[in-house]
Nucleic acid binder design. Structure first.
Length: 626
DNA sequence: ATAGGGTTAG
């Protein structure tokens, strides 16, 4: 580019005219632009009137064409013509092939820009990588007091608020919307509600939504997708109940948002219902819907159904393949993930970093160390993908789980972010499986150094110490928990029965049918014990390490057992029981669930924080390798 | 002249 700046040869000029680009246009002096015109002989002789240019701009639909018109504008000295500059500005700011930097330059040359010009620049930045700039321009617009914001201005600036997480700005813009009398505009209101949800102001958003004078399908869909993306899955599903009551209908967007929430909470029954609706109303051909269905089935523990949807899809994209690969991965099916990966390549679809997360996860859980290493290297060598922190996490897990703790430690050393506590925590977890005190201590030391250690970590190391009969170590951990009062994440499990989701925490007594559940649990424990289940008291209790904070990690009544008892009581014989939990399954619960699956002849599918466990006939699909 | 909604990982 630099050399071109000085270039004066005719061939160079022709080349330049051909790929005249706004990005570089900023740096061109006007004399240079005149040179370009001279090269194109006819241009400087032909004087074009402004209305001709405006007409040309109106019909302009490609960058190439605009580049030509732009040259005409410069040649004829029309770059400051108000209507022309606004049109040009709009194109530069909004078009994918435009340039925001150039748009800003054009904008600065407009005297007293009107709403139209402000809108262009705000819209351009709202969709750009720096949406904050849009808010600045909006502020400037208001203080300039020349042009009044209109509904479009508000839509654009709200988009920016949504993207930069500007909570207080949302409220301020809301005030201006009311002041300008636009609080009844559906689009503006929908945008406002969106930015409230995305900024976590759920209550406010809900009230706004309820009070909207008019709501269309897009408004409803926005609610669902925003709730879903912000992690408010139950709220998203509740919106659907309201939609049914108010007969608003639904479309592919609705289904995608809802299915994603079903996937997150493991609501298979609702997901199946949505699948039926999708088939009845002709939305299964929609790739987005198909992908969401695959993901929903996989995340709800039903790989067979995911496969059925996959097989029937006419069009597949990267999401389709990734959903299958990640699905097999989290089910501990490295073989399946690898097979889909190969098919994906044969179908000519380029993998991305998520593809490899699925693959590595599958390899790690199936003990495919060599394959995992191979794919990890393949990312860079064959696909030019840089492994991220999560990929390193998978590798630490891959080696650690397989007992290659030294290798796991080495991997952390080569990772770009050694100050990520997750890597050290993963290693600590592996040390617990393999009862390795030495490396466990190294992991803990790093966690402490990073000021990231929590009670869960202390309990892990205490267990390792206890296993090695290291009383001093146990006491040290106990002291640490007590002195720092560090808390663990409260554990919970939930189960879907019918269309309702029941959530349990440890020793939960809050369920309306609590008595019945505990009664059932006693029976279940009894049956499991008859088949050889021995409650496994953790060393923590033995060592008297139990504190209120680490209750969840003890073997009191874990949420999972309550959910299983509830499931056995409330679902018919022979139907699988599906549980979703936020932590990993503990040893005692794992053994308990195996025995229950045999005693009650029930398939029990547990989705824990990292993977699926399918319990059947006294065995688990993870083969106790988890 | 110009507007709002979608899937995988975390």
């Amino acid at each position: 580019m630099e050399s071109r700046k000085q270039g004066g040869k005719k061939e160079d000029m022709d080349l330049l005219v051909q790929d005249l680009d706004f990005r570089s246009a900023i740096y061109w002096p006007s004399s240079y632009m005149q040179n370009i015109a001279k090269v194109k002989g006819t241009w400087n002789r032909e004087m074009i009137k402004s209305d001709t240019i405006l007409k040309l701009l109106q019909g302009c639909n490609s960058l190439k064409r605009l580049q030509k018109i732009h040259s005409h504008v410069i040649t004829n000295g029309l770059q400051h013509h108000p209507a022309i500059s606004t049109k040009l500005l709009n194109f530069c700011a909004v078009s994918v092939s435009g340039s925001l930097a150039y748009a800003e330059l054009l904008f600065r040359h407009i005297e007293n820009p009107q709403t139209e010009a402000w809108n262009s620049i705000i819209r351009g930045f709202a969709n750009s990588p720096s949406p904050l700039q849009a808010i600045f321009y909006y502020n400037d617009m208001l203080s300039a007091l020349v042009a009044r914001p209109d509904t479009f201005t508000f839509s654009f600036v709200l988009k920016a608020c949504e993207r930069v997480k500007a909570e207080s700005k949302c409220r301020e813009v809301h005030g201006n919307i009311i002041r300008c009398g636009y609080e009844r505009d559906v689009v503006v209101c929908t945008n406002l509600v969106r930015s409230y949800v995305v900024n976590g102001l759920i209550g406010l958003a809900q009230t706004m939504f309820d009070n909207m004078s008019e709501r269309d399908l897009v408004s409803w869909n926005s609610m669902i997708s925003c709730y879903s993306q912000a992690g408010f899955h139950h709220e998203a599903l509740k919106v659907y109940d309201r939609m049914k009551n108010e007969n608003v209908g639904l479309d592919g967007f609705t289904l995608v948002g809802l299915l994603s929430s079903c996937a997150h909470v493991g609501a298979l029954n609702i997901g199946v219902h949505l699948h039926r609706i999708a088939s009845e109303e002709g939305f299964v051909e929609n790739v987005f819907v198909g992908n969401a269905l695959i993901d929903m089935y996989a995340k709800c523990g039903s790989l067979d159904d995911a496969l059925r949807v996959f097989d029937r899809m006419q069009r597949r994209d990267i999401f389709t393949w990734n959903s299958m690969i990640v699905g097999y991965g989290v089910h501990g099916r490295g073989d399946g993930a690898i097979s889909f990966f190969k098919q994906m390549l044969m179908a000519g679809v380029q993998p991305n970093s998520i593809t490899f997360l699925g693959l590595l996860c599958g390899c790690s859980h199936q003990g495919f160390v060599e394959e995992g290493v191979e794919y990890f290297h393949m990312m860079r060598s064959k696909f030019n993908l840089k492994p991220g922190i999560k990929h390193y996490g998978c590798m630490v897990d891959l080696f650690g789980r397989a007992g290659k703790l030294e290798k796991a430690l080495e991997i952390i050393g080569t990772s770009p972010s050694q100050d990520d506590p997750v890597l050290w925590r993963t290693l600590l977890g592996s040390c617990k499986i393999h009862k390795n005190v030495k490396i466990g201590e190294i992991a803990m030391r790093n966690l402490i150094q990073l000021r990231a250690s929590n009670a869960g970590d202390c309990v892990l190391l205490a267990t390792i110490y206890a296993g090695a009969k290291n009383t001093d170590g146990v006491l040290k951990m106990r002291k640490m928990i007590k002195s720092q009062g560090i808390k663990t994440t409260p554990g919970w499990s939930w189960i879907e029965v019918g269309n309702d989701i029941h959530k349990f925490v440890v020793d939960d007594k809050s369920h309306p049918d609590s008595n019945e559940i505990y009664c059932k649990l006693r029976e279940v424990i009894c049956q499991a014990t008859l088949l050889g289940y021995v409650p496994e008291k953790s060393f923590i209790i033995v060592a008297g390490l139990i504190t209120k904070e680490c209750l969840e990690t003890s073997t009191s009544c874990h949420s999972e057992k309550l959910a299983i008892a509830f499931g056995l009581a409330r679902t018919s014989k022979g139907t699988p029981i599906r549980i979703v939990k936020n932590l990993r399954v503990c040893r005692d619960c794992h053994s308990f669930t195996k025995h229950v699956s045999k005693a009650f002849n029930r398939e029990i599918i547990v989705r824990d924080r990292v993977r699926f466990h399918h319990f059947k006939d006294g065995f688990c699909s993870c083969k106790d390798y988890w």
